[in-house]
């Protein structure tokens, strides 16, 4: 039996790493940070597996490790190797503002989650709230960052958030479900990266602000 607090604390750590992923100037570093964050997620899965005595979660942890800690960061890292790094540090709002927004997301998440009365999740309210907030962090990343790869990372953060929620609330789900979600996420990343690569090849930019010709 593991302490609930461990899980909650780990979740908190998750938030911190996400902020780092968002705010790091260099996308390659972000990719690495993302890998690290996914590792924390895997740890949470393991902790949950022990606490809940849910065997499926081991498998989850394994697949998450494979996809999120290894596969996705590698893909991203390699893809980033092929592109020009000069445009990588663009963002829309300054770091303090985005931190503030992040804080807001946390507050909103806590408010919403605290209303839920789930007997299975009663212990993990903070973790649940954090998972929701984490989801929003991903969104925040997409909104505030102009680099296409940062936007992909934002999507990955959202994935992690929802993944955590799934683990907290539905750890007994069949493996197939989890695998489906994970694979989809990986494929999404692959396709996003491929598209971003094409865009870079054709348009020589990774700045989403330059992708604004279609309007009205």
């Amino acid at each position: 039996m593991l302490n609930v607090n461990l899980i909650n604390t780990l979740s908190g750590l998750l938030l911190l790493t996400s902020l780092l992923v968002i705010e790091t100037k260099k996308p390659r570093q972000s990719a690495i940070l993302y890998s690290f964050q996914s590792l924390i997620l895997v740890a949470i899965f393991l902790a949950l597996a022990i606490r809940m005595e849910a065997d499926q979660l081991y498998l989850w942890a394994a697949s998450a490790f494979l996809t999120k800690v290894v596969l996705v960061p590698v893909i991203l890292y390699r893809a980033l190797g092929k592109v020009d790094q000069t445009v990588t540090s663009l963002n829309t709002v300054s770091a303090p503002v985005s931190v503030l927004l992040a804080a807001l997301a946390v507050v909103v998440s806590f408010t919403v989650v605290s209303q839920i009365e789930l007997k299975s999740a009663a212990d993990f309210i903070p973790a649940l709230a954090i998972s929701v907030a984490h989801f929003f962090f991903g969104q925040l990343c997409i909104v505030t960052q102009r680099n296409l790869f940062k936007q992909i990372l934002g999507f990955c953060l959202m994935e992690n958030g929802s993944h955590l929620t799934l683990a907290l609330l539905a750890y007994r789900a069949p493996e197939l479900v989890e695998i489906g979600i994970a694979t989809d996420a990986v494929f999404a990343v692959i396709i996003l990266v491929a598209l971003a690569g094409q865009i870079y090849k054709r348009l020589h930019t990774l700045d989403s602000a330059e992708l604004q010709t279609l309007k009205g």
């Binding site: 997409i142 296409l148 936007q151 999507f155 999404a188 396709i191 996003l192 598209l195 971003a196 094409q198 865009i199 054709r202 348009l203 989403s208 992708l211 604004q212 010709t213 279609l214």
Partner: peptide, 11 residues
């Protein structure tokens, strides 16, 4: 425009 649209679409 096609790539731009595709990117927006996917994201």
């Amino acid at each position: 425009p096609a790539l731009e649209a595709a990117w927006k679409y996917v994201v």
